[in-house]
Design a binder for these strands. Sequence first.
DNA 1: ACCTGAACACCGTTCAAGT
DNA 2: ACCTGAACACCGTTCAAGT
Lengths: 237, 237
Amino acid sequence: MTTQAEPGVEPRTPLSRARVLRAAVRIADERGIESLTMRRLAEELGAEAMSLYYHVAKKDDVLDGIVDAIATEINDVVDRIDAPARAGDWKTAVRQRILSAREVLLRHPWAPGVFESRTNVSPAVLRYYDRLVGLMREGGLSYDLAHRALHALGSRALGFTQELFDPGAGPGAGPGDAESEAMLASMAGELPHLAGMMMEVVHDKPASTLGWCDAQAEFEFGLDLILNGLDRMRERA
Amino acid sequence: MTTQAEPGVEPRTPLSRARVLRAAVRIADERGIESLTMRRLAEELGAEAMSLYYHVAKKDDVLDGIVDAIATEINDVVDRIDAPARAGDWKTAVRQRILSAREVLLRHPWAPGVFESRTNVSPAVLRYYDRLVGLMREGGLSYDLAHRALHALGSRALGFTQELFDPGAGPGAGPGDAESEAMLASMAGELPHLAGMMMEVVHDKPASTLGWCDAQAEFEFGLDLILNGLDRMRERA
DNA sequence: ACCTGAACACCGTTCAAGT
DNA sequence: ACCTGAACACCGTTCAAGT
């Protein structure tokens, strides 16, 4: 009552990173990702484009932010469907999670493209993969097989393709160096399954390539998995 | 001798669509796709940006063009490795083609992203898929299984994901209408296998969805193919 | 037929300035 | 602490004009 003086003057809720990101998702949903510009985004919030830079570093920061927002939405959905009897049946559990993730992404058709374009990894995406690996482990898959499973699923796991921990991407980080060890240690709390998986990969295939994964080998694994499956169907037909 | 008058004046080869596209690929290869601008492209050719518009309609046209150029490069490579004894072994033949396509794409790391972004289908890409379906047919796969195979391979078939003939994309084209029939007829010559495959899909599942493919069903087919394959590996381990 | 200069309506982003 | 106006260096593209 005392704070806002003049009547008829909208006090306009102050900007914030969260409000900016929500508005960005709204614009992308309603008018398409190509019409998400800093100027349009400010307009949606009743502010000037330059004001956004107080809450986000740059447009890339906005894109990283909305990727994490969508991944969080996915996590919220899949976490809710977990508990029921998945005893022993990792396939149905994983299947259910992936199909639910797909439903969310179908509501944000622009998202897969943005996911792919990001070079920074979203914490929420990591969390999603971590739980997926967790389910596979409970189902009896080795870390090694779970690792190859993620590669084989590729775009299917989240509705898009991403080379997780692409060795070429980071600033010279490779398995075994101090920086990587520190990262693994810090991951163990929040992302136990991913951390465990990577530990094993590092120890078992120390010199597989310069990075965590041998991209060519992973590609061929997934390819052969599919081709063999198809061939089995052919035989049976 | 008589045509170019003044000495020391470079006559500068005239522009052409082909030269523009070659320059575009060169820029993308050397400085990355994000530095492929019309102005930069003109500079590379020793011309003004506006001159390009005489040879290409717009930047989208350039992107469509370089996609087709890369796909043509892939076709050139895979066509050369075909003849040798592939008797009965469709898997090795398909595998070889896909791995060769991958080699080409690794030389143009920007290409998968541009492939995905295009809404127009490249004739060379269609030709690639047509030959792939041809190999599968020779190997004993039904058109239906070949069709599902393309979806299951997804990003792996060409190093990128694309919903071929996405029903939502075209201007209201659906199976069974006159326009589609005409397209199928005109395809039969150049793309016999794709045409045959689509004929069968249209007749067998006339009302599967509004378009050629039931995206959800195809997604689940590929997903289960992978999950079942992984589960078999788990059992054996 | 082919190429260009000037101009328009956009971008993302910086920076000094306002409250 | 939070927001803004003016400005810069870019975009893609049009259009009338040059040869």
